[in-house]
Design a protein around this nucleic acid. Structure first.
Length: 300
RNA sequence: GGUACCAUAGCUCAGUUGGUAGAGCAAAGGACUGAAAAUCCUUGUGUCCUUGGUUCGAUUCCGAGUGGUACCA
């Protein structure tokens, strides 16, 4: 498909400098930014998610940043919808859209689409969570074996989230999860190019540690404290918050909690790289190669 | 200065009744289509502080040295 509209996806691990790169690109391409970050949606979580600052938000128009509350239910499918709507709005009078963020699943949803699967009934989801709690993983595994033997064979069977997800679809629809999980890729009405920020591991680790220290200085503890009462929400199962909750509950010292944030951030960065390495469409650049990146992007 | 205890993986430590060693954490690799900053899987060779002795064989026992910790002066 030939097209003069292009989505420029900026990827990289956390703390790699994606936010400022995206702003530069958006300015040089005279366009706007869509977030692909599954935590910066939440308006209550700013410091801990390294969301763009007010200054950064003024430097380029951002979409899907701070557009949700931690209390909102949200998922990838809703995101796909929101992100496509935002991009088609921007494409109306721009040649490019810049997408930036570190959530691989959400990036894939925007670029390739995801299968249409009916939403699970809340009571089904609730019952399954209870079954897992009271009857154990063995039980829900055997239930999946019965409801969807094909998926049972290939699923990451020790991963409760995967097993529950498949089951909630089976029990809601009365059909197998496999039936819905066809993995059809969707062709988008725009070109997609992906550029990645490739850091030397040790340098990135230094940046992560420094950024955590800065977040603390900026008031992460206060921000997390205000969120403490909502710790059960999924949106708060987030690095930078959950560790501080332990500190608030006297389960560890502040120093320990901060170290733990650093460790968990390092591990998050590692998982992101595992995801991105698999994506052959990403063109990688060293962090200081801005001119090269811009030149590359301008070919499209 | 004296006495006691300790020295094993990046860290905290276990262990070998003498046959060259293993947990947790960290780290590395990976999976992942509606909770994804989530969730899950795999991976442990290291002068067992140095040196002399005993022994077929010492990381293990004995001596000395070095370093650390505690107590006594």
């Amino acid at each position: 498909m030939s097209n003069n509209k292009t989505l420029v996806v900026v990827v990289g691990p956390t703390a790699s400098g994606k936010t400022s790169l995206a702003i530069q690109l958006a300015n040089d391409l005279n366009t706007e930014i869509i977030s692909t970050d599954s935590r910066q949606f939440y308006k209550e979580l700013q410091i801990g998610t390294a969301a763009p600052t007010e200054e950064e938000l003024n430097a380029a128009k951002h979409h899907l940043i701070g557009n949700l509350s931690i209390h909102d239910y949200y998922n990838v499918s809703m995101y796909e919808n929101d992100a496509l709507n935002a991009s088609s709005e921007i494409f109306k009078d721009h040649e490019h859209v810049v997408a930036v963020g570190g959530s691989g699943l959400y990036i894939n949803a925007l670029c390739d689409g995801i299968d249409e699967i009916p939403d699970p009934k809340p009571e089904v989801r609730k019952q399954l969570a209870e079954d897992l709690e009271t009857k154990g993983l063995d039980y829900i595994q055997s239930l999946l074996k019965e409801k969807d033997p094909d998926f049972y064979k290939i699923v990451d069977i020790n991963n409760p989230k995967r097993v529950l997800r498949a089951l909630e679809v089976c029990l809601t629809t009365g059909e197998s999860f496999t039936k819905y999980r066809v993995k059809n890729l969707t062709e988008r009405p725009f070109n997609i190019i992906k550029i990645g920020l490739l850091w030397n591991r040790e340098l990135l680790v230094d940046r992560i540690h420094q950024r955590v220290d800065i977040m603390i200085q900026q008031g992460l503890i206060e921000e997390a404290k205000a969120m403490h009462q909502y710790k059960h929400l999924n949106s708060l199962n987030t690095v930078g918050y959950k560790e501080l909750f332990d500190y608030f509950e006297d389960k560890c010292t502040l120093e320990f909690a901060i170290e733990k944030i650093k460790t968990n951030t390092r591990r998050y960065a590692k998982r992101q790289m595992t995801w991105f390495r698999k994506d052959q469409n990403i063109v990688w650049f060293a962090p200081d190669q801005y001119e090269e990146m811009l030149k590359f992007v301008r070919q499209y």
